[in-house]
């Protein structure tokens, strides 16, 4: 077999949550470009339709599932739908999360933190457990979690110099706690699922530049990376495909920073 064939997902069934925008969209593109049939689960069906259209124009096979991560019935329905139609889930990418409102930084309030725990922690564990049960039955599968560079290191407040509105949110509680939990759980779950041939890994992206990212922040943040820049739309694709495919068949329990070397200095 040619080494490049190891990266192919032809004939594979992939399910992604949060795959319509930002890093999730990059992951969706990588999965369909490699030949997977993709189920794109999103709470925002209208926006997902635009992403699905774009993916189909690239030749991708894409179905949209309406999904709400705070709702256990919606999560169960999402998993059941894919299993009923395809009989299996080969790749599960969970890239969805909510950003809590109410209170900023250290002063985040109970309502926002509770919402984050319900969706980003309980919802995350519940949906991954349900997919994991299916992967145990089929004795194979690759689970890819989305952690963060901010699950690996604490915040550098000087990245926000010149932007006091961003600095105010620097010391928030839930994001670092949740992303740290995902990195550790990746090792924990890899121990549990390993004997069934199911792999669990995590990608820890750094900051993603968009046309709305302030210039001063880009300058500050870039200095903190070894490659001297923020991430672009394409940086996540190779890493997603590596973990989703047979190219990483002997890799499990790993959290890979995709951060331009941010956490290495």
């Amino acid at each position: 077999m040619n080494t490049l064939d190891l990266f192919s997902l032809k004939g594979k069934i992939a399910l992604i949550t949060g795959g319509r925008a930002m890093y999730g969209k990059g992951a969706s593109i990588a999965l369909v470009d490699a030949g997977a049939r993709l189920y794109l689960a999103s709470h925002s069906v209208d926006s997902a339709k635009d992403t699905a259209l774009e993916l189909r124009e690239r030749g991708g096979m894409v179905d949209i599932i309406e999904f709400h991560q705070e709702d256990p019935q919606s999560i169960q329905k999402m998993v059941d739908l894919v299993v009923k139609k395809e009989g299996r889930i080969d790749v599960f990418v969970n890239a969805s999360r909510v950003i809590p409102r109410n209170g900023v930084g250290w002063f985040q309030e109970e309502s926002g933190l509770d919402w984050s725990v319900r969706v980003n922690s309980a919802g995350f564990l519940y949906m991954t457990m349900l997919v994991g049960e299916q992967m145990i039955r089929q004795k194979s599968g690759s689970i890819i979690n989305f952690g963060s560079m901010m699950g690996l290191v604490g915040v550098e407040k000087h990245n926000y110099d010149g932007h006091p509105e961003m600095a105010a949110g620097a010391y928030s509680h839930d994001y670092a706690l949740n992303k740290s939990a995902i990195t550790a759980w990746t090792r924990h779950a890899a121990s549990y699922y390993g004997k069934y041939g199911v792999r669990v890994n995590t990608l820890c992206p750094g900051g993603l530049a968009s046309d709305r990212t302030p210039e001063r922040f880009i300058e500050n943040y870039s200095k903190h990376t070894q490659l001297g820049r923020l991430a672009n739309d394409s940086d996540i694709k190779g890493a997603v495909l590596f973990l989703a495919s047979e190219a990483s068949a002997y890799i499990t329990g790993l959290s890979i920073p995709v951060d331009g070397g941010y956490v290495s200095i």
Binding site: L125, L177, W185, H188
Partner: peptide
């Protein structure tokens, strides 16, 4: 592992 490991980076953040 989720709860036990959540501390590792939360202490860096805090």
């Amino acid at each position: 592992g989720f709860v036990k490991g959540s501390y590792v980076n939360y202490v860096r953040q805090a």
